[in-house]
Amino acid sequence: MPASDSDRSPTARRGVDLALLRQDTGVQLRTTPATMRYVLYALVPGTLAYALLIEARILFTVVIAAIAAMAFEALALTLRKRDVIRTVSDGSAALTGVLIALSVTPLLPVWQLIVGAGIAILLAKHAYGGLGYNPFNPAMVAFAVLLVSFPADMSHWPGKADPANETVWDTVTAQTPRDRWRELLREQRHQHMDEKSLSSASAKTDDTVQLVAVGWRWSSVALAWLLGGLFLLWSRVISWQAPTAFIVTLALCHSAASVFGTTAFDPSMTLLSGAALFGAFFIITDPVSGAATARGRLLFGCGVGLISFLIRQFGSWPEGLAFAVLIMNSAVPLIDRLDTPRHPR
């Protein structure tokens, strides 16, 4: 018997000894908190672009939402008698808060933002058992609840992004830029069809110029999201399947629709405006509520793309991503079930 038997660790166990493996081979893989940190880093360029080009208040709302989400997480963990420090510090709650703030309009009243964070953390996450067990994307649940509860405030988007303009807070339209586009292009089409007077058409031209400017700004933000997304792909935090399937499906649907002449959007505009790229890389890549396998992720991305196209095209909401994600979230158990490993039996 060894002399030091009494002070030997009683956890003599069988199985993988990660610490020893690391010591021997130096293999060091990314942990869950690191994954969350990477996603937060990837959001930096898009957020900065957003703040510079669209609305500086976004920086304020992002911080508020992150703090609120972490506070709600700490509350839920205390109530559930879990390790508060360890879990809050994994960054998942902060990420959820940031994603909510970036999804909703930056002009949303702060109390509504906090309500959204509470819904995401308490209702969508901890009511189901916390990190890893939520069937729905918490940020999108919060978005949907806020959209349904406060439709007016939620569609209060910054319209004039001109920094020189003193009335930054004063929005020209009560719709998202995407919504404005739709309205405008519809009118133009009607004019083309009706061959109405030239004067009314020229009256719209100013508006178009302004909208093109807004479109340019939003497109820049979208490209900044793309930059962050490429970083995530490169660092292998996310896999390519879901974003690619989503973007391709969306582009194909819109191209087909424009060929048949039933849409107001052209595909490039579709991808560079609204939430498409942000959603592609930061929303539908949520691993917990998304499909787990490679094929499942392709299917999931396609589904989200198709449903959000249908909502944009035929539904009454200007932006269909949140509902599309929630609908596909509910289909994930089925998708996972479809793609079970096939072994020769």
Binding site: T32, P287, T293
Partner: peptide, 17 residues
């Protein structure tokens, strides 16, 4: 003897697959 960290919940990242 290295310290063994308690595990965290599965986030379904799919790396294991």
């Amino acid at each position: 003897a290295p310290s063994v960290q308690p595990s965290r919940p599965c986030i379904r990242c799919g790396d294991c697959i």
